[in-house]
């Protein structure tokens, strides 16, 4: 509801902006505020609603920890997805499988092939980065369609992961390795802070550094970037490679947290990644993909799902919620982008 009213305040529906935009002050008005913070408001409302309906279960340290301590994989995956979206590639569909590959590799190499856990972790991250590099080579150098390449790569990697594990979940990582993910800091696992630091760093780079400016110009208009001296090929290729690196790090941390990995589960991340990333465009910087908006969206979605589960819904609810939010978020993002013009 509040998103709706925010949109209306910016411009009346049914009539597009006139060709010469009137010189309205962009830093004022309820519309300006709502376009940035409405989702956060809805998030708080949701928490209050659940708190009123289920005070005995929702308003507990336990559920707080479930929401904030369990979404690290999603944070890393959305960061990986943002890498390519920011430079104007549609979406990298292979990040979830690439993440799964790293999680499987570190476990299989350590448990079944008796590598040292650190060298196994390094090998897993290198493998994922290499996958990103190959994606980049195919898309940027060979000029193949992004969706086709990454969808194919994702399915291919899923198959490889299943083959490596013989279709079974794998586990058995040493318990001291688990501490890299589970060490408690201020009541939350340290991996929560990894995710926060990653997104803050990403936001910093995009917002205030020349590198981030270049990334965004490449995303907005490749030819303009090239004419200004940006090495566009390198930037795009680098984005795919970085996406692989981040997915790999996320995979290793995720495997560490649970002591292993079920290769079948990586596909379940695909839709939540999209839902969070697109919902993120309706937060903080309306109409624009942005790391902190995405980070908030991840926890918004986790809160929504947990609350519904506490209200008695079973596992179907996450599909309904994530799928529904994705469609709503894309619609909202499209409308906001039109308003922003």
């Amino acid at each position: 509801m509040s998103e709706q009213s925010s949109a209306t305040a910016v411009a009346p529906p049914g009539k597009p902006d006139p060709a010469p935009a009137p010189a309205r002050s962009p830093h004022s008005g309820a519309g300006w505020f709502a376009a940035r913070f409405a989702v956060i408001g809805v998030w708080l409302l949701l928490a209050v609603l659940y708190g009123v309906l289920r005070p005995e279960t929702f308003l507990t340290a336990g559920s707080f920890k479930v929401v904030f301590g369990s979404q690290q994989a999603l944070v890393f995956l959305t960061a990986a997805l943002l890498c390519t979206i920011v430079v104007g590639e549609f979406v990298d569909m292979s990040v979830a499988s690439n993440f799964g590959l790293a999680a499987v590799l570190v476990t299989v190499l350590n448990v079944q092939h008796e590598w040292g856990v650190w060298s196994a972790a390094l090998a897993a991250v290198v493998a994922s980065t290499a996958v990103g590099f190959v994606n980049g080579w195919l898309v940027v150098k060979m000029g193949v369609n992004t969706i086709v390449v990454t969808l194919g790569m994702g399915t291919f990697l899923l198959g490889v992961s299943l083959w490596l594990t013989d279709l079974m979940p794998v586990s058995g990582l040493p318990s001291d390795f688990k501490m890299i993910a589970l060490q408690q800091v201020a009541g939350l696992p340290i991996s929560f802070f990894y995710g926060l630091a990653l997104m803050l760093g990403f936001a910093y780079v995009l917002q205030v550094t020349p590198l981030g400016r270049n990334l965004r110009f490449v995303g907005e208009n490749r030819e303009v970037a090239r004419l200004a001296g940006v090495r566009v090929t390198r930037v795009r290729w680098g984005a795919f490679t970085t996406a692989g690196l981040i997915a790999g790090l996320g995979g290793v941390i995720s495997a560490a947290a649970t002591g292993g990995f079920d290769p079948n589960s990586s596909q379940a991340y695909l839709l939540p990644i999209f839902a969070a990333t697109f919902l993120g465009t309706a937060i903080l910087q309306p109409g624009r993909f942005n790391p902190m908006g995405t980070w908030i969206a991840v926890y918004f979605l986790a809160t929504g799902v947990l609350g519904l589960q506490l209200l008695g819904a079973t596992s179907w609810v996450s599909s309904v919620f994530y799928g529904g939010v994705l469609v709503l978020a894309v619609t909202l993002s499209t409308r906001l982008h039109q308003r922003a013009r």
Binding site: T209, P210, R213, N214
Partner: peptide, 22 residues
């Protein structure tokens, strides 16, 4: 021009582009 970016960002771009530091 990158039409979705601001006037200031566009005007500064040739200066900010070559040295892609952090």
């Amino acid at each position: 021009l990158a039409v979705a970016m601001t006037v200031a960002e566009n005007i500064a771009f040739p200066q900010t582009a070559p040295r892609a530091g952090v």
